[in-house]
């Protein structure tokens, strides 16, 4: 399935959000291109959920422009709505329904929006199987565990075969296995169906595994935008080289580990043992970027700080 248009699926320019005098978003800019999996990271209260809600059309922005699938989400009509899938943080509805009934019912709303080559909604049995709920398909939602409930939420989010899927902390409460299955599902949606995905998470490993691109939101602004790899390169003191020579352990932080190691061998040759070169993890990068933002107290921090 190819997206209906070639431009970005999501285009956000100078997005502002204020509640009274409290500014939650102070000029957010980013794009999401067709088929991309983009992850929105940020500390609590940074405005991740607010941003997603504005894009979903569930919350009116205070300023700026937002384009989602060629429309302003504040005025998205029902045909637009049919192309967007939503998985929010806090559901506890339809306790008396079974997953099969609920998916069949909610899916039926998408029937009029099927098109040639775009069957809508997804088949309920396929969905149940995909999220691993086949064995629980006919139990009441009330009796499902937290993780099963969450997988049902994901199934509901994609039942209409969305071109764009919003996921707000989708794996909160998942055990490691459910988490891995969920990651497989997102990869499948993105690779096979061409679904564009925008998700928020607190889990940096998850962001690294899933996202083509990571946006870090801090203090109501995007303070970093790039792949996990690009982001770790942007942070100062990137590489760390450890080695042993003559029974002594050495540690050296450098932005350019490769020439440093070459120099090391040129100088000492065979004396160097137990060599380790570590790149900073995404977690180090994330913490560094958020800390830098907080130190900058409100001003937009520069990204290309040291090396590249």
């Amino acid at each position: 399935m190819r997206p209906a248009h070639d431009g970005p699926v999501v285009a956000v320019r100078d997005l502002q959000m204020r509640y009274g005098t409290h500014q939650v978003l102070g000029g957010v800019d980013f794009d999401v291109r067709p088929g991309e999996v983009v992850c929105l990271l940020g500390p609590n209260g940074a405005g991740k959920t607010t941003t997603i809600e504005v894009l979903e059309g569930f919350r009116l922005r205070s300023g700026g422009s937002v384009d989602v699938l060629g429309a302003d989400p504040a005025h998205g009509d029902d045909a637009w709505r049919a192309r967007v899938g939503v998985v929010l943080q806090s559901w506890r509805d339809h306790a008396r329904w079974t997953p099969r009934q609920l998916l069949g019912y909610l899916g039926s709303y998408y029937v009029p929006y099927a098109g040639p080559g775009v069957p809508r909604p997804y088949d309920v049995d396929w969905l149940l199987d995909t999220v691993g709920l086949t064995a629980h398909a006919d139990r009441k939602v009330l009796t499902l565990s937290g993780g099963q409930r969450r997988r049902l939420d994901v199934a509901v989010g994609i039942v209409g075969r969305p071109e764009l899927l919003f996921l707000d902390e989708p794996t909160a409460g998942f055990d490691p296995e459910a988490r891995r299955d969920f990651h497989d599902l997102v990869h499948r949606l993105s690779d096979l169906e061409g679904t564009t995905v925008l998700l928020t998470t607190h889990d940096l490993t998850e962001a690294e595994k899933l996202a083509d691109r990571i946006l870090i939101l801090a203090g109501g602004r995007i303070v970093a935008d790039g792949s996990a790899d690009e982001l770790t390169r942007q942070v100062a003191g990137t590489g760390e080289v450890r080695w042993t020579r003559g029974g002594e352990r050495f540690v050296h932080a450098t932005a350019e580990p490769t020439p440093f190691v070459r120099g090391l061998f040129e100088q000492y040759g065979e004396e160097v043992t137990d060599l380790e070169v570590t790149r900073p993890s995404l977690e180090d990068t994330y913490l560094a970027m958020v800390a830098r933002h907080e130190a900058g107290s409100g001003s937009v921090p520069e990204l290309a700080v040291v090396a590249s």
Binding site: D78, L88, L106, Y109, Y113, V156
Partner: peptide
Amino acid sequence: LRHKALPH
């Protein structure tokens, strides 16, 4: 909210 996310 679930219904708000659906067309019609």
